[in-house]
């Protein structure tokens, strides 16, 4: 059984895992500059050293409600398709090894999550959803109620 390292985080009140090889760092976001007239899942842009990153309101994807973003919010920095993003999360916990094969194939995530979750795995007896980060920046938001 092969184990891969995952970052465990809280997102919209649920426990999720992001593959650690995709995670560049976790930062407290500095000043956020809003982007007018763009996809509602974009919380704004912010500077990280000399780079400009796009901040994704991950919660909006799940709940359809825009998160109140303020300076100091936690974001997971990741690079997708050549662009750098910050994914807003509520809290980060730890980096742990998880084996996908442990996953229970007959348990499916709830509908709101379905698009963004690749697998369900267990970690220390708890279920975690493994996020597919690509879908978070594709912009085609599913209107959730």
């Amino acid at each position: 059984m092969t184990y891969t390292l995952y970052l465990i985080a809280d997102l919209a009140g649920s426990r999720v895992a992001i593959e650690s090889s995709q995670v560049e760092s976790v930062v407290h976001v500095p000043d956020i500059v809003p982007v007018p007239k763009c996809d509602p899942s974009i919380a704004g842009i912010f500077a990280l050293r000399s780079r400009v990153l796009t901040l994704i309101d991950t919660q909006f994807h799940i709940t359809g409600k825009q998160q109140l973003v303020e300076k100091g919010s936690l974001a997971v920095v990741t690079e997708i398709a050549g662009h750098q993003y910050g994914l807003l999360v509520d809290k980060v916990h730890d980096v742990v090894p998880i084996a996908i094969a442990q996953a229970d194939s007959n348990i499916r995530p709830p509908a709101a999550w379905n698009r963004y979750v690749d697998h369900i795995a267990t970690h220390e007896g708890e279920l975690v959803m493994i996020l597919n980060t690509d879908t978070l920046v594709s912009g085609q938001t599913v209107p959730a109620t």
Binding site: C38, D39, S41, I45, V52, T54, H83, Q84, Y85, G139
Partner: peptide, 9 residues
């Protein structure tokens, strides 16, 4: 600097 596709959309 180039913007992310969602921003440039």
């Amino acid at each position: 600097k180039p913007g992310a596709p969602l921003v440039m959309g």
